[in-house]
Structures are given as structure tokens and as C-alpha cells.
């Protein structure tokens, strides 16, 4: 369960720009991480920090009209996906990599039966067709525990609850046994009890298939229960990445520290909550250096330059993008 294993997916220096009022701005910059087979990497950060854009960039689904990948590589088993054209990406999407989206209520096509929508993934990536595809799709729906799946195979999405629709989405994502699955806040829109069921289902399916998973969330409680490693993003930068216990016990980046101490806890007074002062800068006014500098208590003049993501000497699996903390740590080591 570590990077030492052969990585399934390597993201290297990924930078994606969006056009705002005629000018291009980096929505994510220099994002690098890898995920191994059987591993779950959680990608955390507040809304708008670039988590979803990272996932869409990996999938090649950045809207072409106003977005594009400007640098970096996405290596799937050593093959770079970034230069591939649409036809080649169609062969990979839903096959080797698949994705589960945040909104189960709007992510299924309202005018197509759910069984058809599951079978469709098989049709374009496997030799299965007709009755065979139907049988396999039914097995998938049963596998994700849709009650009386055979009877409901030809029902439409509006006849299903949010939790059931998310199960259908999971069945679609799993259809072709992908090497890696990107789950973009798959439980955020669901009730808490349903959330727990869906999380348990995902964990169970992952351990059965041995696939890698990138789990995007802003919920640190979910991170603790599902992730092997955690990558923290802030304003489009990946600022810290570490195994899950390490990150919770020894957060290095000042933003990660602040994030962890802003979680409400039952055993503490609400007065002890420390909200982070200030705001995330808008994409049109991002500093070229560390993007957290304006809100950071540790700020030094050097922070106007972008810090590199540095592996800590005490634990090379723990990497942080901060001039001050990287320097402190190497002085202590």
C-alpha cells in the first residue's frame, strides 16, 4: 500500500488553465502524485481548490471551450494520456479509468433506462453485446446491491433514490473492471446514513478488485475512514501529501494545520474552533509564489517564489510545499 509498489497512475507536473474574460489562468499548477494498485489516495481541500479539475484533467474531460492542459503528464501504466486525441481517450475512459460524480441526481440520463446506461459502458469496451451485455449489467447492479435489480433493470433514474442512483453510478464505473477509479465527492450529496453505506460499498469493491482509487472530498472524517494516503490541495496547488495517520498526526504545511484545527469536535467548545483568517484569492489575482502566503502566519520574503514539493528527511513518504517548514525540518534532521 505504498508508492514503493508499481504505481498504477502517475500525475506529473499537471497544469490546467482556464480562460476568464479572454485571459488564461492556471486553475491547477504543477500537480504531481501517484497512486498504486489497491491504494486509496484522498484528494482534499475546500471548494474551488482544483480537486475536481485535477480529476477531469486526468479523464481528459476538461471543457475544451475554455479550458486546456498546458503542461504535465498523466501516465497510466507508463503511457502518457495528455497528448491522446478524443478517439483514443474514448477507449480508455470507462475502461481503464472511470469516474463517479458528486451529483447522483443529475449524473444519470433521465430519458434512458438505468440498465441500458450500465450496459452501455460494456458495449464500447468489451465484446459483450445484446443479451450477454444485459446479463452482465444485471450482475453489476446486483453486485452494488440494488434491491430486485432484475425487476428494476428497465426503470428510469427518476424512479430511484439518491443513494440508489449513486449505486448505479458505481456499477457503471466498475463495469469494465478499471485499474483506477476517480470518485469525485461521491457521498457529499447523500444523507449521512446513505453516505456510510456507499462508503462501505466502495471499500468492499475496492478490496475485491484491487483497483486504485482517487477519492476526492472536503470531508476530513471520510478521509480518515477510507484513505491510505492524503494529498491536500489549496488554490490549485498540491501543498502536502502523506500517509493518512502521518498527515493527521504531523501536519507540516500551515494550511493543513489550520484545516485540521478547523474541524468541529464534540469534545471541545465551539469557541476553540479556529477559522482560517482571510479568503482564497480569486483565480484572476493569484500570487505567482505560494498561494497561501497572504493568510499564512509563517510568511517570509521568500514566499513570493513558488516553493517546491519537498520530501521530508525523516519520512520520504511525507512531502510538503512550504519554504519555512521544509527548511525547519531539514535543519532538525
Amino acid at each position: 500500500m505504498s508508492e514503493a509498489q508499481h504505481p498504477s497512475l502517475v500525475v506529473d507536473g499537471l497544469t490546467t488553465a482556464f480562460r476568464v474574460e479572454g485571459r488564461w489562468y492556471d486553475a491547477i499548477r504543477d500537480v504531481s502524485f501517484s497512486v498504486a494498485k489497491n491504494e486509496t489516495l484522498a484528494l482534499v481541500g475546500e471548494s474551488g481548490c482544483g480537486k475536481s479539475i485535477t480529476a477531469l484533467s486526468i479523464m481528459g474531460l476538461v471543457p475544451k471551450a475554455n479550458g486546456r492542459i498546458t503542461a504535465g503528464r498523466v501516465l497510466l501504466d507508463g503511457r502518457d494520456l495528455v497528448p491522446l486525441d478524443e478517439t483514443e481517450m474514448e477507449k480508455i475512459r470507462g475502461n481503464a479509468i472511470s469516474m463517479i460524480f458528486q451529483e447522483p441526481m443529475t449524473s444519470l440520463n433521465p430519458v434512458l433506462p438505468i440498465g441500458f446506461q450500465v450496459a452501455e459502458a460494456l458495449r464500447y469496451h468489451t465484446a459483450l453485446a445484446g443479451e450477454a451485455a444485459r446479463a452482465r449489467a444485471l450482475a453489476l447492479l446486483e453486485h452494488v446491491k440494488i434491491p430486485s435489480a432484475a425487476r428494476r433493470f428497465d426503470d428510469y433514474p427518476h424512479q430511484f433514490s439518491g443513494g440508489m442512483r449513486q449505486r448505479v453510478m458505481i456499477a457503471i464505473a466498475l463495469a469494465c473492471s478499471p485499474q483506477i477509479i476517480l470518485a469525485d465527492e461521491p457521498t457529499t450529496a447523500l444523507d449521512v446514513t446513505i453516505q456510510a453505506q456507499v462508503l462501505a460499498l466502495l471499500a468492499e469493491l475496492k478490496s475485491e478488485t484491487g483497483m486504485a482509487m482517487i477519492f476526492i472530498t472536503h470531508n476530513l472524517g471520510v478521509v480518515a475512514s477510507i484513505a491510505d494516503r492524503v494529498a491536500v490541495m489549496y488554490a490549485g496547488d498540491l501543498i502536502e501529501i502523506a500517509p493518512v495517520e502521518e498527515l493527521f498526526e504531523h501536519p507540516m504545511h500551515p494550511y493543513t494545520e489550520a484545516l485540521l484545527s478547523s474541524i468541529p469536535r464534540v469534545d471541545r467548545d465551539a469557541g476553540d474552533l479556529k477559522p482560517i483568517a482571510g479568503q482564497v484569492p480569486p483565480i484572476t489575482a493569484m500570487p505567482s509564489g505560494c498561494r497561501y502566503a497572504d493568510r499564512c502566519p509563517l510568511r517570509v520574503p521568500r514566499c513570493t517564489k513558488m516553493p517546491p514539493l519537498v520530501a521530508l528527511a525523516v519520512d520520504p513518504k511525507h512531502r510538503v510545499r512550504c519554504w519555512v517548514r521544509a527548511a525547519e525540518e531539514s535543519a532538525n534532521a
Binding site: 474514448e90 480508455i92 475512459r93 470507462g94 460524480f101 440520463n109 433521465p110
Partner: peptide
């Protein structure tokens, strides 16, 4: 611009089919 069009593309459904089956129906 709907989410289910993105879902169809994430399944690897060819662009032509996305337009004529997934989008047109709606």
C-alpha cells in the same frame, strides 16, 4: 452542459452517440 452528458463521456461513449442518443433524447 448537463452532468449526464459528462457521465456518458466518462464511460467512453463515442461523441456521435453522446449527441444523438444521450443529448438529443433530452
Amino acid at each position: 452542459g448537463e452532468d449526464y452528458i459528462r457521465t456518458a463521456r466518462s464511460k467512453g461513449v463515442p461523441a456521435r452517440v453522446v449527441i444523438w442518443r444521450h443529448a438529443l433524447g433530452n
